[in-house]
Amino acid sequence: MKTEVTRLLGIDYPIVQGGMQWVGLAELASAVSNAGGLGILTALTQPTPEDLAREIQRCRGMTDRPFGVNLTMLPAVTPPPYERYLDVIIDSGITIVETAGNSPRAFVERMKAHGIRILHKCTSVRHALSAERAGVDIISIDGFECAGHPGEDDIPGLVLIPAAVRALKIPVIASGGIADGRGMAAALALGAQGVNMGTRFLCTREAPVHDAIKQALVAAGERDTNLILRSLRNTARVFKNAVSDEVVALERRPGGTVFEEVRPLVAGQRGRAALESGDAQAGVVSAGMVIGLIDDIPTCDELIRRMVAECRTHLRRALAMAEE
């Protein structure tokens, strides 16, 4: 499938794996890339920049296809050493970087000087336009259905994707709410040049999380997510479980809550422990509404091949309807 995204990234199919904290490791990234998509390592999953360098080398030992690195920049009291992570990305010869969170403007010139293609993930057209002006190559536009941080505007993909395509001159990747070839066909029909998937790749054989977590997501429906931290304007969509229910209850109390009160519940290490132990009730697990469309745990190769075949079938069916 040839689109601007496949041309820019040097991949066979316009399918990008989301940069998922604790999940974007070499096992998953290499499997997606070997299947013809774009695998993504998550930089901040690695405790130090030196660990990221080793993970990049480990991924190179598992695939000779293009893969990228996600560098998410979020406000923090003590921020990670983003510059040092970027040093490793450049020194390791990575040619594709997915940025998210804050504007990548401060890093764009340096990445461009080293021939890096930049995908920037954002949740609104206004932020996408700002990133385009900053010089990124591709926008990954994240609809309200997505896992993780959907922003505060609550615009779903059916509106957000064509709004972004209409406003931008650079290619758009549709993200959030896509799990199969039907969603991919819809995204392409709306003007996107590719799709980005996180939750769907979490439910694959190669995803480095406990099988019980995958089975819990497969068994869930589209109503089985919670929006947490809404009252603190740091909204995150996560799997509906005991922990996220407790966070929601605290936020809905008269007088609400403060971050220090919910911090132990939403701590990243607690979520990581849940992914590793298989206890789906033990911590916050990022998951999109698309869990309602997931009913198996294929390999990445099986998933991508099936998606592409389904996508072509649905596009042909829609074209036949138009011709009639």
Rank of each mutant, 00 (worst) to 15 (best):
M197Y: 01
M197N: 03
G198D: 02
G198P: 07
G198C: 14
T199E: 04
T199S: 12
T199V: 09
F201G: 05
L202D: 09
L202W: 07
L202H: 06
C203D: 02
C203K: 03
T204W: 00
T204L: 00
R205Y: 13
R205M: 11
E206P: 00
A207W: 07
A207S: 10
P208S: 13
V209M: 07
V209S: 08
V209L: 11
V209H: 00
V209N: 07
H210R: 12
D211M: 09
D211Y: 02
D211G: 02
D211R: 14
D211I: 11
A212M: 14
I213R: 04
I213E: 03
Q215R: 15
Q215F: 08
Q215S: 12
A216P: 09
A216V: 03
V218M: 04
A219Y: 05
A219I: 10
A220T: 01
A220M: 07
G221Y: 00
E222N: 06
R223V: 12
R223Q: 15
D224C: 04
D224W: 01
N226I: 04
N226M: 03
N226W: 01
N226T: 08
N226E: 04
N226R: 09
L227K: 09
L227I: 12
L227W: 02
L227Q: 03
I228L: 04
I228Y: 06
I228S: 02
L229D: 06
L229P: 03
L229H: 02
R230V: 13
S231C: 08
S231Q: 13
S231H: 12
S231E: 11
S231N: 15
L232W: 02
R233Q: 09
R233P: 01
N234H: 11
N234K: 14
T235D: 05
T235C: 05
A236E: 04
R237A: 04
R237K: 02
R237M: 03
V238P: 04
V238W: 07
V238E: 04
V238A: 15
F239Y: 15
F239C: 05
F239W: 00
F239I: 02
K240N: 01
K240Q: 03
N241Y: 01
N241C: 06
A242Y: 03
A242L: 08
A242S: 10
A242P: 09
A242H: 04
S244Y: 00
S244F: 00
D245E: 12
D245C: 08
E246L: 05
V247N: 01
V247I: 08
V247C: 03
V248C: 02
V248T: 14
V248N: 06
V248G: 04
A249V: 10
A249R: 15
A249G: 10
A249L: 13
L250A: 13
L250H: 11
L250Q: 14
E251M: 06
R252C: 10
R252N: 14
R253I: 09
P254V: 10
G255H: 08
G256A: 14
G256Q: 14
G256H: 15
T257R: 09
V258N: 13
F259N: 10
E260D: 15
E260C: 02
E260H: 09
E261I: 11
E261C: 12
E261H: 13
R263V: 11
P264E: 11
V266S: 11
V266F: 11
A267V: 09
